[in-house]
Computed example of a mutant assay.
Amino acid sequence: MLYGSIEAGGTKFVCAVGNEDLEILHRESFPTTVPAETMAKVIAFFKKFETELVGIGIGSFGPIDIHEESPTYGYITSTPKLAWQNYDFVGAMKKEFSVPVAWTTDVNAAAYGEYVFGHGKGLDSVVYYTIGTGVGGGAIQKGQFVEGFSHPEMGHMLIVPHEDDSYKGNCPFHGNCLEGMAAGPAIEKRLGKKGADVPESDPFWTIEADYIAQCVYNTTLMLSPDVIILGGGVMKQQHMVKKVHEAFTNLMKGYVKTPSLDEYIVTPALEDNAGTMGCLALARKVALSA
């Protein structure tokens, strides 16, 4: 038996299959262009394993429709990627493969990967943020995604601009939301270069850490999770975790007692594999419950 994983990001799709122990056996990635082109490559990838495939997990960029009773369940809905608006993702896969399909957001999938295999293993409450090209967040409570009328859009929480930051924000909807102020494109538009090219000594990183710490502060007071995991390209800056710890401590001012920050505010144990592992685990879950 093989389980399939589709990590559908705004820049690229990562497809993989894993065995019963969820060990990754094969993986390929394709640029995210238009549905006809990208999905043809996705389907061709899984056709090679069709006779052994028993379930597929999809973690997709969004917004997406997560409600199974909805006529547009399985659709990517009002995404800014115009070619993908109102695209029936789950329907397209079900036309080709007669196996159960798990469907969630890309950041929920990463959260689930960490919940099953990483820093969330054995814990009841896990929150995962990805801070990269965009900012997204997912939360898990006792094995279930925290959702309501839709999935969370935590990356668009409003934050207080830093006193040394005159930038007004990159988000066309909210300006100074977390994504508008702290995502990769906001860094590049503010500084004229990508975050990876900004030296550790640059004072901007103190501002960035403050914005991420505001996110962690808000999350702590709203959800009191066991762990908050910060992924994405921005958090690959090794110095950022310590800066976020310091900024969070200054914001919280001892109001609530959290776990040790070295265990409470962390980067992903699975690194770039969190989404793929989460999708495989969701594929196994949906296959076993079918």
Rank of each mutant, 00 (worst) to 15 (best):
L221V: 00
P225Y: 05
V244C: 04
G233V: 11
V234T: 09
G231T: 01
T267G: 04
T267I: 10
V266K: 02
H239C: 05
K243I: 00
A281G: 14
P259L: 03
H245T: 02
S260A: 11
M240S: 06
L230V: 04
M240F: 03
I265G: 09
V227D: 06
A283I: 11
E263K: 12
T276N: 05
A281N: 14
K257I: 01
L251F: 03
M235Y: 01
L261S: 14
V241M: 09
M252H: 00
L261I: 15
I228T: 15
P268L: 12
N250V: 01
A269F: 07
G231C: 03
I265A: 06
V227G: 13
T276M: 13
P225R: 10
K257M: 01
T219M: 10
H239N: 04
V234Y: 06
E271W: 04
L280S: 09
K242Q: 13
K253I: 00
L251A: 07
L261C: 13
C279R: 06
G233Y: 05
K253L: 01
T258P: 10
A283Y: 09
T267K: 09
I229G: 07
L251Y: 12
T249C: 00
N250P: 00
V256T: 05
L221P: 01
H245V: 00
Y255N: 01
Q238M: 05
S224Y: 05
M240D: 08
E271H: 14
D226C: 05
T258S: 05
L280T: 10
M235N: 11
G278R: 03
I265T: 07
R284H: 14
K243W: 06
D262E: 14
Q238S: 08
V256K: 02
M235I: 00
D262M: 01
C279W: 04
T220P: 03
T267Y: 10
L261T: 14
K236V: 09
P259G: 13
P225C: 12
V244Y: 13
Y264V: 08
V227A: 13
I265E: 03
L223R: 14
V244I: 13
G233H: 08
S260Q: 10
C279K: 05
A247K: 14
A247L: 02
T220E: 07
R284Y: 12
M240H: 08
T220Q: 10
S224L: 02
D262I: 01
H239P: 00
A269G: 02
L230R: 06
M252R: 01
G231M: 02
C279T: 15
P268H: 11
A274Y: 03
P259M: 10
M252D: 00
A247P: 05
K236E: 15
N273E: 15
V234A: 02
M240W: 04
I228M: 09
I265P: 07
N273W: 09
A274G: 06
T276E: 08
I229T: 02
I228G: 12
V241E: 06
G232F: 12
V234W: 04
S260L: 09
S224H: 07
L230N: 09
A274N: 12
L280D: 13
E263M: 09
T258N: 07
I265D: 09
